[in-house]
Amino acid sequence: MLKKISKIPFTDTPEQAAKLDAVIAECAGDQSQLMHVMQVAQDIYGYLPFEIQKKIADGMGTDLEKVYGVATFYAQFALSPKGKYAISVCLGTACYVKGSQDVLNELTAQLGIEAEECTEDGKFSLSACRCIGACGLAPVMVINDDVYGKISAKDVKGILEKYA
Protein backbone atom coordinates (compact mmCIF):
# COMPACT_ATOMS: atom_id res chain seq x y z
CA MET A 1 0.00 0.00 0.00
CA LEU A 2 1.34 3.39 -0.96
CA LYS A 3 1.81 5.64 2.06
CA LYS A 4 1.60 9.41 2.02
CA ILE A 5 4.45 11.06 3.88
CA SER A 6 3.56 14.13 5.92
CA LYS A 7 5.13 17.53 5.19
CA ILE A 8 3.71 19.04 8.38
CA PRO A 9 6.56 19.93 10.79
CA PHE A 10 6.82 17.54 13.71
CA THR A 11 6.28 18.76 17.26
CA ASP A 12 7.03 16.90 20.44
CA THR A 13 6.18 17.53 24.11
CA PRO A 14 8.44 16.46 27.02
CA GLU A 15 5.68 14.15 28.31
CA GLN A 16 5.40 12.40 24.95
CA ALA A 17 9.17 12.05 24.68
CA ALA A 18 9.39 10.65 28.22
CA LYS A 19 6.72 8.02 27.47
CA LEU A 20 8.53 6.85 24.36
CA ASP A 21 11.92 6.83 26.11
CA ALA A 22 10.50 4.58 28.80
CA VAL A 23 9.23 2.02 26.28
CA ILE A 24 12.49 2.05 24.33
CA ALA A 25 14.48 1.55 27.54
CA GLU A 26 12.27 -1.40 28.45
CA CYS A 27 12.59 -3.12 25.06
CA ALA A 28 16.11 -2.16 23.90
CA GLY A 29 18.17 -5.16 23.01
CA ASP A 30 15.22 -7.35 22.01
CA GLN A 31 14.76 -6.98 18.24
CA SER A 32 11.47 -8.85 18.30
CA GLN A 33 9.96 -5.95 20.29
CA LEU A 34 10.48 -3.45 17.45
CA MET A 35 6.88 -3.55 16.24
CA HIS A 36 5.62 -3.20 19.79
CA VAL A 37 7.71 -0.04 20.30
CA MET A 38 6.44 1.38 17.01
CA GLN A 39 2.84 0.62 17.98
CA VAL A 40 3.28 2.43 21.28
CA ALA A 41 4.96 5.36 19.48
CA GLN A 42 2.02 5.60 17.13
CA ASP A 43 -0.37 5.61 20.10
CA ILE A 44 1.59 8.52 21.59
CA TYR A 45 1.99 10.65 18.46
CA GLY A 46 -0.82 9.46 16.21
CA TYR A 47 1.68 8.69 13.45
CA LEU A 48 5.35 7.90 12.90
CA PRO A 49 7.28 10.96 11.67
CA PHE A 50 10.88 10.46 10.54
CA GLU A 51 12.21 12.02 13.74
CA ILE A 52 10.49 9.32 15.77
CA GLN A 53 11.56 6.52 13.44
CA LYS A 54 15.15 7.71 13.85
CA LYS A 55 14.81 7.85 17.62
CA ILE A 56 13.41 4.30 17.70
CA ALA A 57 16.16 3.02 15.42
CA ASP A 58 18.89 4.54 17.59
CA GLY A 59 17.25 3.40 20.80
CA MET A 60 16.70 -0.16 19.63
CA GLY A 61 20.21 -0.40 18.16
CA THR A 62 19.04 -0.94 14.60
CA ASP A 63 19.04 1.02 11.32
CA LEU A 64 16.55 3.64 10.20
CA GLU A 65 16.05 1.60 6.99
CA LYS A 66 14.82 -1.31 9.05
CA VAL A 67 12.33 0.82 11.00
CA TYR A 68 11.16 2.56 7.80
CA GLY A 69 10.86 -0.84 6.12
CA VAL A 70 8.63 -2.17 8.87
CA ALA A 71 6.60 1.08 8.97
CA THR A 72 5.82 0.91 5.26
CA PHE A 73 5.12 -2.83 5.25
CA TYR A 74 2.21 -2.85 7.69
CA ALA A 75 -1.04 -1.02 7.01
CA GLN A 76 -1.44 0.04 10.64
CA PHE A 77 1.57 2.38 10.66
CA ALA A 78 0.85 5.90 9.41
CA LEU A 79 3.47 8.30 8.08
CA SER A 80 1.16 11.29 8.20
CA PRO A 81 -1.11 12.52 10.99
CA LYS A 82 -4.77 11.62 11.09
CA GLY A 83 -7.54 14.24 11.22
CA LYS A 84 -9.35 15.19 14.41
CA TYR A 85 -12.01 12.79 13.21
CA ALA A 86 -10.50 9.78 11.48
CA ILE A 87 -13.02 8.15 9.19
CA SER A 88 -12.47 4.68 7.91
CA VAL A 89 -14.76 2.79 5.60
CA CYS A 90 -14.62 -0.99 5.59
CA LEU A 91 -13.90 -2.40 2.14
CA GLY A 92 -13.94 -6.03 3.29
CA THR A 93 -15.84 -8.44 1.06
CA ALA A 94 -19.06 -8.50 3.06
CA CYS A 95 -19.22 -4.70 3.12
CA TYR A 96 -18.14 -4.37 -0.51
CA VAL A 97 -20.91 -6.57 -1.91
CA LYS A 98 -23.37 -4.49 0.09
CA GLY A 99 -22.18 -1.20 -1.40
CA SER A 100 -19.43 0.21 0.82
CA GLN A 101 -17.59 1.54 -2.25
CA ASP A 102 -20.54 3.89 -2.83
CA VAL A 103 -20.24 5.08 0.77
CA LEU A 104 -16.53 5.80 0.25
CA ASN A 105 -17.26 7.64 -3.01
CA GLU A 106 -19.89 9.76 -1.28
CA LEU A 107 -17.42 10.66 1.51
CA THR A 108 -14.86 11.65 -1.11
CA ALA A 109 -17.44 13.87 -2.76
CA GLN A 110 -18.62 15.42 0.50
CA LEU A 111 -15.18 16.06 1.98
CA GLY A 112 -13.26 16.77 -1.20
CA ILE A 113 -10.46 14.38 -0.26
CA GLU A 114 -9.42 10.97 -1.49
CA ALA A 115 -8.82 7.94 0.70
CA GLU A 116 -5.60 8.22 2.78
CA GLU A 117 -5.87 12.03 2.78
CA CYS A 118 -6.71 14.62 5.40
CA THR A 119 -8.81 17.79 4.94
CA GLU A 120 -6.82 21.05 4.96
CA ASP A 121 -8.26 22.18 8.28
CA GLY A 122 -7.08 18.91 9.84
CA LYS A 123 -10.61 18.01 10.81
CA PHE A 124 -11.35 14.87 8.82
CA SER A 125 -9.09 12.17 7.46
CA LEU A 126 -10.37 9.39 5.29
CA SER A 127 -9.15 5.86 4.87
CA ALA A 128 -10.36 2.57 3.48
CA CYS A 129 -9.77 -0.39 5.75
CA ARG A 130 -9.95 -4.14 5.43
CA CYS A 131 -12.54 -6.04 7.42
CA ILE A 132 -13.05 -4.91 11.00
CA GLY A 133 -14.96 -8.11 11.65
CA ALA A 134 -18.38 -6.55 12.12
CA CYS A 135 -19.69 -8.21 8.95
CA GLY A 136 -23.16 -8.62 10.46
CA LEU A 137 -23.49 -4.84 10.28
CA ALA A 138 -22.23 -4.41 6.71
CA PRO A 139 -21.59 -1.89 5.28
CA VAL A 140 -19.67 -0.37 8.15
CA MET A 141 -17.96 2.98 8.67
CA VAL A 142 -15.97 4.02 11.75
CA ILE A 143 -15.34 7.60 12.90
CA ASN A 144 -12.79 7.58 15.74
CA ASP A 145 -14.46 5.07 18.08
CA ASP A 146 -18.02 5.42 16.81
CA VAL A 147 -19.22 2.59 14.60
CA TYR A 148 -21.94 3.18 12.03
CA GLY A 149 -23.43 -0.01 10.62
CA LYS A 150 -25.96 -0.87 7.90
CA ILE A 151 -25.45 2.52 6.25
CA SER A 152 -25.84 3.66 2.65
CA ALA A 153 -24.42 6.58 0.68
CA LYS A 154 -27.54 8.55 1.54
CA ASP A 155 -26.70 8.51 5.26
CA VAL A 156 -23.23 10.00 4.84
CA LYS A 157 -24.24 13.66 4.88
CA GLY A 158 -26.29 13.32 8.05
CA ILE A 159 -23.51 11.45 9.84
CA LEU A 160 -20.88 14.04 8.89
CA GLU A 161 -23.12 16.83 10.21
CA LYS A 162 -22.84 15.34 13.69
CA TYR A 163 -19.15 16.21 13.63
CA ALA A 164 -19.54 19.73 12.18
Binding site: Q31, S32, M35, F73, Y74, A75, F77
Partner: peptide
Protein backbone atom coordinates in the same frame (compact mmCIF):
# COMPACT_ATOMS: atom_id res chain seq x y z
CA UNK B 1 -0.12 -4.49 12.32
CA UNK B 2 -2.27 -5.16 9.30
CA UNK B 3 -0.64 -7.29 6.64
CA UNK B 4 -2.58 -10.07 4.95
CA UNK B 5 0.56 -12.03 4.04
CA UNK B 6 1.28 -12.51 7.77
CA UNK B 7 -1.44 -15.15 7.79
CA UNK B 8 1.07 -17.31 5.87
CA UNK B 9 2.88 -19.36 8.48
CA UNK B 10 6.48 -18.46 7.69
CA UNK B 11 5.63 -14.78 7.16
CA UNK B 12 3.91 -14.73 10.52
CA UNK B 13 7.04 -16.06 12.21
CA UNK B 14 9.18 -13.46 10.46
CA UNK B 15 6.79 -10.82 11.77
CA UNK B 16 6.94 -12.11 15.37
CA UNK B 17 10.70 -11.74 15.11
CA UNK B 18 10.16 -8.01 14.52
CA UNK B 19 10.69 -7.82 10.76
Amino acid sequence: AGAFVCGEETALMTSIEGN
